Amino acid sequence: MDIDLNADLGEGFGPYRMGEDEALLEIISSANVACGYHAGDPVIMDRTVRLALARGIEVGAHVGFPDLMGFGRRQMQIDPSEVSKYVLYQLGALAGIAKAAGHRVTHMSFHGALGNMAAADYQLAEPLVRAVAEFDPTLIIGVSTNTQIERAAEKIGVRFANTFLADRAYDDEGALVSRKIAGSVIKDRDAVLQRVKQLLEDGNVTTITGKKLNIKVHSILLHGDTPGAVELARTIRGAIQAVNGRIVPLSRLV
């Protein structure tokens, strides 16, 4: 089994740091880099890209709402045509920094509230996916299963990779459970590891109601700001290798 191991990185701002990016870059195969809207800034973006390049790690743009105070997790009611320009802006920022560093952007994903809203609303998802295609039709969109983002990507003809969020609960339709609901974020390391093993061995995940749901994934995502993220990443990497799995970047899977 070939699978990508992915993490959200570059989520500090100015002198403030979040997560253990350098340690995670020794474990993962691709990284989502915050592009300055929900987190990150040009200096942090450049540093993250160069660290990734030195380790042969692919980078992708992690785009969100312009909401540094809320870490991009607060919903914003903005016309989709305007939000699509926010997407272009962030893609361009990371692509420019990557080019200057001698690296390139291979994928992208929608962060936080923006991703959740687009996942549930095709009228929002389509213009955002179209903006990605117009910027670079070779980019891969990382997305959770059963979303309107997938449907928009299929219509527009953009490649997408299904991502399993190891520390987030799923509902019976395969969508992420809102963070407002108890149990939506799984903080117990053993429980997260068991979910990964179940996915690798059985191809399914247990939903928040206890139902087993078959899902096909290309990537396992770890949140870099989760306490114990580095040790958890090492454990998950070991679990993949224990079933003779290979950890490879997204560009080689889709």
Rank of each mutant, 00 (worst) to 15 (best):
C35S: 10
N32G: 06
G72E: 07
P66R: 15
D136C: 03
A95T: 08
E20H: 15
R130A: 10
P127R: 05
V143N: 04
Q123R: 14
S30Y: 09
I78H: 08
L24K: 11
V83N: 04
P42C: 07
M69C: 06
A52M: 06
H111V: 13
S29V: 04
P80T: 06
A120P: 00
Q90E: 13
R74A: 03
E22I: 10
A131G: 05
E126R: 15
H107Y: 08
H107T: 11
L94T: 03
A113M: 07
M69A: 15
D79L: 09
V49I: 13
A120S: 11
L51C: 13
E58P: 00
G56I: 12
E134F: 00
A39F: 12
F71I: 14
N116F: 06
L51V: 02
L139N: 00
E58M: 05
V143P: 03
R130H: 01
G115E: 10
A101S: 14
I140A: 01
Q77Y: 11
M69W: 06
M45G: 04
A52L: 06
G72N: 09
A113K: 00
F135T: 05
V143R: 01
V132D: 00
K85Y: 03
S109F: 02
L53D: 07
L91S: 00
L91C: 04
L114C: 08
L88Y: 02
A118I: 06
L114A: 10
M69P: 01
V129P: 00
M108L: 15
M45R: 03
E26I: 07
A93Q: 02
A39N: 09
G70N: 10
M76P: 00
I97N: 05
V87P: 06
R55Y: 07
A93N: 02
Y86P: 02
Q90W: 11
L94W: 02
K99Q: 12
G72K: 09
A100S: 15
S109H: 11
